[in-house]
């Protein structure tokens, strides 16, 4: 059976998506540049915005690449690459993939080799994140012109609502992680401890630059602990 996950066809789809995103970025940059000139914004200011933002984005982009890497074990390289190039973010893609896998009685804890399950995961990741794009298409113009601003008067509750929803999701996965036994609990604790250390360094030692790496490094630490523990328990690599 062919490996759909890393097939040339999927890499081709990935390349197409990357080209689309590049084209859109270039078109929007060109339009903004032209309008900026018309408004009398100095070219130097606009160039500074481009170079500054590009430089600013290198490190977070490496963090996104690491997120692709963490998903590659179960889903292959192209699908996580596609998902994190358009719309996606690891905090959404991972729960979406796992929930879809579980509906088919499996889990992304192991390699997804069944083509039907793989396609279901691809559908779930894509359909689940389309909503914001539909909203933007329909309402961005009206939101910009101020009509909808009133809807978000209670910004404190809006922030709390997002936190509460995320906490519901996180606690659900924490609860199901308990079922993974000691290895999973060790991975969870190692990753949580790493994140706590990052939090202290960022807040107390004012090392704000570490912020971008806190999530991927914590995840990789947790995963590494799981691998090392299993090797030690089995008395070496088998």
């Amino acid at each position: 059976m062919i490996d759909i996950r890393n097939s040339p066809f999927l890499f081709g789809l990935g390349a197409f998506v990357a080209l689309f995103v590049t084209a859109q970025s270039l078109v929007f940059i060109a339009a903004a540049w032209k309008e900026g000139k018309r408004l009398g914004i100095p070219s130097a200011t606009m160039r500074k915005a481009l170079v500054g933002s590009g430089t600013f984005s290198v490190v977070p982009s490496i963090a996104i690449l690491l997120a692709v890497l963490t998903l590659a074990g179960a889903l292959g390289l192209p699908l996580p690459w596609i998902r994190l190039s358009v719309v996606g973010a690891i905090t959404y893609e991972l729960p979406a993939a796992e929930t879809a896998a579980q509906a088919f009685g499996t889990s992304i804890k192991s390699t997804i080799s069944d083509p039907t399950v793989f396609s279901a995961i691809a559908w779930a990741m894509s359909l689940g994140s389309v909503f914001a794009m539909v909203l933007i298409t329909l309402f961005a113009k009206r939101i910009q012109s101020g009509i909808h601003k009133a809807q978000l008067k209670d910004t404190k509750w809006a922030g709390l609502l997002i936190s509460a929803m995320f906490m519901g999701l996180i606690s659900a996965f924490l609860g199901s992680a308990l079922g993974g036994g000691l290895v999973s609990i060790l991975a969870l604790l190692a990753s949580a401890a790493t994140m706590a250390i990052f939090g202290l360094l960022i807040k107390k030692a004012k090392m704000a630059k570490l912020e971008n790496f806190a999530m991927p490094v914590s995840m990789i630490t947790g995963m590494a602990v799981a691998a090392l523990y299993t090797i030690a328990r089995n008395g070496g690599v088998r």
């Binding site: 963490t70 993974g180 999973s184 969870l188 190692a190 939090g199 995840m219 691998a227």
Partner: peptide, 28 residues
Amino acid sequence: LESPALKPAFANLLPALFGALGVVFISK
């Protein structure tokens, strides 16, 4: 990435993500 030694690492992707995310949201 697909070697047997790394299998347990990828098998624990979810606890690794949610352990870290948990700390972020609980401390918030």
